[in-house]
Write a protein that binds this DNA or RNA. Structure first.
Length: 676
DNA sequence: GGATGATCAGTTAC
DNA sequence: CGTAACTGATCATC
């Protein structure tokens, strides 16, 4: 029920009484920040406007979204134990509050059960940070390209991508995460164009840090609000900016905490990614190796010492505090890639030392997963088994709903009731146009040999897409745009060209499953990266000619109705690095005439339900004809999607015209519009 | 030719 | 301020 319970230690343990650091006047002009309160109380979320802006930002002319009012929200509806409701707090980044005297952390009279007690003297650092955004324009942070990013921050646009009223931690974490990804994809695109160093993760991370666009700033024991078990990540920097695990490389995150009069160093989060010799056979226990012993720069190995993270783990074993665990696995989808899964809270049961094969001593800690938590890494293990051998998937009604039409079988399962399957329809992986494709305007192609390369000024397809190829080398959509032009038959490049993504069809193990209250739904065994292609909306193009009463009976029509903000704001990376906005507001949004019905025929996408907080977006794509009014409708992942998470997209905002067809929304999201 | 290892540049927070 | 650290991309090697 309450978060505070997470902090209640074992029977022998004193109550923790560290005071939160807040209600202090900011020492420095703080950069804009989103800050989930670091204490254990219900998350108080504030967005603080920047004290100073770079020159040139007049008061007028700000975009309509993202006004610069200070607001702070006291979260309602969150249960709270043992603490009185808090007033609004100032959301100046925690780093700005750090003081040299540890006593300063106890200034507050509240009875917070637990919070950070960072006594290290790093006010200096905070100052430096702020300088990055200050009016003098001196960039205190080194991010190489594009050069003066922070000068170009546009006031309104900084806030623009954030939720309109960020009063729930999940929304903030998602927004921060999404922004990081948008930045990372864009930086990767630029890096690939210039054949530069490919650490887009670090570049995106540095910008997020410098602009203080992050969640859960300030360390805390227990859950990180807004981060849910099963959430997946592809880079350590992601864990960093959402406040799940602060060290960018280190495996052990720890902090100093007060226990009555004592002060102790305790571990708060570990990343178990197989860096040391761990055997993780089952998903409820974990043997974690202590840190150190193998220097990165020298060959020499030495015994591990009981200091830093190791000491914190040792103390945590005695304090019996909960420790967040992130498990890292090799991502089969990438050559050299990892996937990180947040697996919830664990406690250390025992520790010992072991002699490694190099003959040095190493600490070992056995952690036990706290009972009663939903599955995290266990789902990953399960679905990986299914992918290797689909016959191990139980509760199957039909092995392949596509009858072999898709290269990967589409499973039909029901674990809820006794429905035997969806109504009759014909499975097709193609769109049936009113006119045959051959009679449509042909698309012009490029003359690239072999494959199209980013940055090639001679590539007609690159030009067609506005200069950059729309996908990164790993096949991920970088940015949402009116139309994406893939290479097609008219092009000289081969099928290996990176600009052929959605035309190659699905690449995931889909599962059509029975939902609790929304009929059939769609989900997937694989984890899906933000920007990855998911599927096309196939069916019959019915167009405006057939707008009639008969439509209201058709639940399977796709139209390019304006989606909600989450979808519209997917692109907001560019703004942060001073590039031109690609944002299209709901007012500016122009629907396309195309209308596809999947009632009689369709593919997996006809089972995708609506959500006001979707994880999938649609994107028009062209490749086999030149009729831009009737493009293919392709779906891409809006954020990283954990295995077995239902795939949903935003069916669009109800307009007057379509209101007679509006339905009550059951998406259950906190930002639900109620109808769709 | 796909897995594996060595190398290197790079970040955060202590 | 130097430095440790369960990174991540690339290139050589088997």
């Amino acid at each position: 029920m309450d978060r505070a319970r997470n902090f209640i230690p074992g029977p022998n343990q004193e109550l923790l009484d560290i005071k939160p650091i807040r209600s202090l006047a900011p020492m420095f002009p703080a950069p804009m920040g989103v800050n989930i309160n670091q204490s254990s109380t219900p998350p108080l979320v504030c967005v603080t406007p920047v004290g100073q802006f770079p020159t040139g930002f007049g008061g007028g002319n700000l975009p309509a979204f993202g006004s610069f009012t200070t607001f702070s929200v006291t979260a309602n509806g969150f249960s709270q134990a043992g603490t009185s409701a808090n007033g609004a707090i100032d959301a100046t980044p925690i780093s700005a509050y750090k003081t040299r005297s540890s006593g300063a952390t106890a200034l507050n009279g509240d009875d917070e059960p637990y919070s950070g007690n960072q006594t290290s003297a790093s006010g200096r650092k905070a100052k430096k940070r702020s300088a990055g955004l200050s009016a003098d324009g001196s960039d205190g942070v080194k991010v190489k390209r594009p050069k003066p990013i922070y000068k170009n921050l546009v006031a309104g646009k900084e806030l623009a991508f954030l939720p309109a009223s960020p009063n729930n931690p999940r929304e903030i974490v998602e927004a921060v995460h999404m922004t990081f990804e948008a930045l990372r994809r864009r930086h990767l695109q630029m890096d690939e164009t210039q054949d530069a160093s490919r650490r887009a993760d670090l570049k995106a991370g540095a910008i997020m840090m410098a602009s203080n666009i992050r969640a859960n700033v300030g360390k805390r024991v227990g859950t990180a609000p807004g981060v849910e078990i099963g959430d997946i990540f592809y880079f350590r920097m992601e864990l960093c900016i959402i406040g799940l695990h602060a060290p960018s490389m280190g495996g052990i995150d720890y902090m100093s905490a007060k226990f009555g009069a004592d002060e102790d160093s305790v571990a708060i989060c570990i990343v178990a990614a197989g860096g040391y010799e761990n055997e993780d056979d089952d998903t409820d226990t974990l043997v974690y190796s202590g840190s150190g012993g193998n220097s990165r720069n020298t060959e020499e190995r030495h015994d591990q010492k009981l200091e830093r993270g190791n000491l914190a783990l040792e103390r945590s074993m005695h304090r019996k505090n909960e420790i967040r665990v992130v498990r890292g696995f090799k991502d089969p989808a990438m050559v050299a890639g990892k996937i990180y899964i947040y697996d919830g809270l664990y406690k250390i049961q025992e520790s010992w030392t072991e002699r490694t094969k190099f003959g040095v001593n190493c600490f070992k800690y056995r952690l036990q997963r706290e009972p009663g938590q939903r599955d995290g890494a266990a789902i990953w293990k399960m679905t990986q088994r299914w992918i290797q051998d689909p016959s191990t998937r139980g509760r199957v009604i039909l092995r392949d709903l596509s009858s072999g039409i898709e290269s990967i079988p589409v499973c039909l399962v029901n674990e809820v009731d006794h429905e035997k399957g969806p109504g009759q329809f014909t499975y097709t992986n193609q769109v049936k146009y009113l006119r045959p494709v051959s009679s449509m305007t042909p698309m012009q192609g490029c003359g690239c040999q072999s494959v199209c390369l980013p940055g090639d000024a001679n590539c007609a397809c690159g030009q067609h897409n506005g200069g950059d190829l729309p996908y990164s080398s790993s096949g991920v959509l970088v940015c949402r745009k009116p139309i994406v032009y893939e290479c097609g038959e008219a092009c000289h490049c081969t099928l290996n060209c990176r600009n052929r993504v959605s035309q190659k069809g699905i690449r995931f193990h889909f599962e059509v499953f029975r939902t609790a209250n929304r009929g059939w739904g769609l989900r997937c065994w694989e984890p899906i990266r933000a920007g990855a292609f998911i599927c096309e909306y196939t069916g019959e193009v019915i167009d405006e000619l057939k707008v009639n009463l008969d439509d209201s009976e058709d639940d399977y029509i796709f139209q390019t109705v304006c989606p909600g903000e989450k979808t519209l704001k997917w692109n907001f990376g560019p703004e942060l690095i001073g590039e031109q906005s690609t944002y299209v507001s709901a007012e500016e949004f122009q629907p396309l005439p195309i209308k596809i019905s999947a009632k009689k025929m369709g593919n997996v996408s006809r089972f995708m339900n609506h959500s006001c907080s979707p994880n999938v977006l649609w994107q028009p794509v062209q490749y086999n004809h030149g009729d831009d009014k009737h493009p293919h409708i392709m779906f891409f992942a809006l954020n990283h999607i954990a295995p077995m998470t239902e795939l949903t997209y935003d069916y669009g905002v109800v307009g007057e015209e379509t209101s007679h067809r509006a339905r009550t929304c059951l998406c259950g999201s906190l930002t639900c519009r109620g109808l769709f």
